[in-house]
Design a protein around this nucleic acid. Structure first.
Length: 484
DNA sequence: TCAACTCGCACCTTTGAACAGG
DNA sequence: ACCTGTTCAAAGGTGCGAGTTG
């Protein structure tokens, strides 16, 4: 893990007065993040995680839950999640596996989910696991609830950003670290494609208890069989193909690990081969990457992290806040406002200027900083020709959505339910997102579309290169393809 | 024609208000 | 006037399956 001391600021912009104290301020212990429910995530990942996206917004399951270590107890941090495309392709489900169905659609407006406890002292984040239970995914590009907008039939993975900042308005001057976990990648869908995923969801999501085999909902299941025998047959076929799978599916993913030594890689590999909907070659590749994955288990399984100085520029126009027409003062760090129509506090920060036009080396605008080719991590020779990357308009929109805080620590964002949000600023148009998938512009390597990218790219970053290269990785913009 | 998507439904958990008892 | 525990209804999260859309 790269320590703060290794940080190589990309910009030499003096921090504004509001920025936390000098560099020594950041001489903290190495921040570490681990994924909770990692085994459950892996169970899904081995099959090919799917996440339903709906117009009103759908929660993730499993939901993102992390543990944080190494924060300065008294320093304040902001925790964010965004979703970045795994690759530049659209997928389709063909019988029993995912296939590439063409180029990815233009990226929807980027949304970053702000943990409702933010900002909170390090002690708060570390005292218990941090849950993103209320994060919702939507396919509605006009969504006004601040949900994270995704395209269906595309692959994404969540990124977790921990930013040391006293308030939301100093975020962009703050040091941050980004964490991702390979097992959290998923395919967004409007309806489940893989029946094994459906079954796993039903077996583990308490809200889907009514669909469990041992459930009391006999009427529904009877109807299900009558009304759609083909589906039932398909279901049965799915189970028959793999005589062991029923037991496996009824088994909690945790059970396999409970009370016994960590699963051998062989076993895991076999399991993955059995379940994975990705082509065999991919699975092998994936497995080979898996085996090189951290053997430490959840405790030591921070995949990688990056640090980056989010620069500021005094000449920059301040964030514009939209609250359904209102314009609260950006200087108000407590972000007070009345609740919006949805009752879900959310807000959008956007910049007026088109940051893409700001000179790279002096702008201090992360999103526009395209690292020199020599700083890029080398592309694996096995990489196929990359999809053409069109000009990505990085017109900045930081669009955060705060789930309604259930229990806020004292002094966190006040007690108001805020709705500082509008889907698009007056200058923001969906068209601005029309660039080709940003993954190409921010990720150093792109595996073949059928490759589980998180292993071929991220794991490579983690294992294939000396740690110094993490700094290269850190050049990629915070808040992904278009947020800043 | 068909894959992708939407919507209403039954079933379930979660949440919070109301209440009782100590 | 508190605190704790229980009850209950409302809100909201699920996948299913029929219908719709392009």
């Amino acid at each position: 893990m790269q320590s703060i001391r290794d940080l190589k600021p990309n910009f030499n912009i003096p921090p504004p007065p509001s920025m936390p104290a000098g560099p020594e301020h950041f001489h903290q212990g190495t921040i570490k993040m681990t994924l909770e429910d990692s085994d459950l995530w892996k169970s899904f990942h081995e099959i090919g995680t799917e996440m339903i996206i709906t117009k009103p917004g759908r929660r993730m399951f499993p939901h993102c839950k992390v543990n944080l270590f190494g924060l300065v107890p008294y320093a304040k941090y902001i925790l964010l999640v965004d979703m970045v495309p795994v690759d530049n392709f659209r997928y389709k489900w063909n019988k029993d596996k995912w296939e590439v169905a063409g180029k990815a659609e233009p990226q929807p407006p980027c949304r970053t989910y702000l943990h409702p406890d933010s900002p909170a002292p390090g002690s708060h984040w570390m005292k218990q696991s941090v849950s993103f239970l209320k994060l919702k995914l939507t396919n509605n590009t006009l969504d006004q609830h601040g949900h994270i907008i995704l395209h269906s039939m595309h692959r994404y993975h969540p990124r977790f950003h921990i930013v040391q900042a006293d308030d939301l308005y100093s975020v962009r001057w703050s040091v941050f670290q980004t964490f991702t976990f390979p097992e959290t990648s998923f395919t967004s869908v409007t309806a489940y494609q893989n029946t094994k995923i459906t079954k796993l969801k039903i077996d583990h999501n308490p809200f889907a208890k009514g669909f469990r085999d041992e459930g009391t909902n006999t009427k529904r299941r009877a109807n299900r069989g009558q009304t759609d025998p083909e589906r039932m047959a398909k279901r049965m076929h799915t189970l028959k193909v793999d005589p062991e799978s029923p037991a496996d599916f009824h088994r909690s993913p945790y059970e396999a690990y409970d009370g016994e030594p960590p699963k051998t890689k062989e076993v895991e590999g076999v399991k993955e081969e059995r379940y994975s909907p990705w082509p065999v070659a991919d699975r092998e590749n994936s497995h080979s990457m898996r085996t090189s994955e951290s053997p430490l288990g959840p405790e030591g399984r921070d995949i990688y992290n990056t640090e980056q100085l989010v620069p500021g520029q005094t000449s920059y126009p301040p964030y514009r806040f939209h609250e359904y027409g209102k314009s609260p003062s950006p200087s108000n760090s407590s972000i007070a406002s009345s609740g919006g129509s949805s009752g879900r506090p959310s807000f959008e920060l956007s910049r007026v200027s088109d940051v893409a036009t700001v000179p790279e080396t002096t702008s201090g605008v992360i999103a526009t900083h395209k690292p020199p080719a020599t700083e890029m991590a080398p592309l694996p020779t096995s990489c196929p020709p990359q999809p053409a990357v069109g000009h990505q308009d990085y017109t900045g929109v930081l669009n955060m959505a705060m789930a309604q805080a259930v229990s806020k620590p004292a002094g966190v964002l006040g007690h108001h339910h805020h709705h500082l949000y509008a889907p698009y600023g007056a200058e923001q148009h969906i068209g601005q997102w029309s660039g080709v998938g940003a993954a190409s512009s921010q990720y150093p390597a792109h595996p073949p579309p059928h490759l589980p990218t998180e292993y071929s790219a991220q794991a490579t970053m983690h294992h294939g290169y000396p740690h110094g290269n993490v700094a290269d990785w850190s050049q990629y913009p915070l808040f992904s393809y278009s947020c800043w």
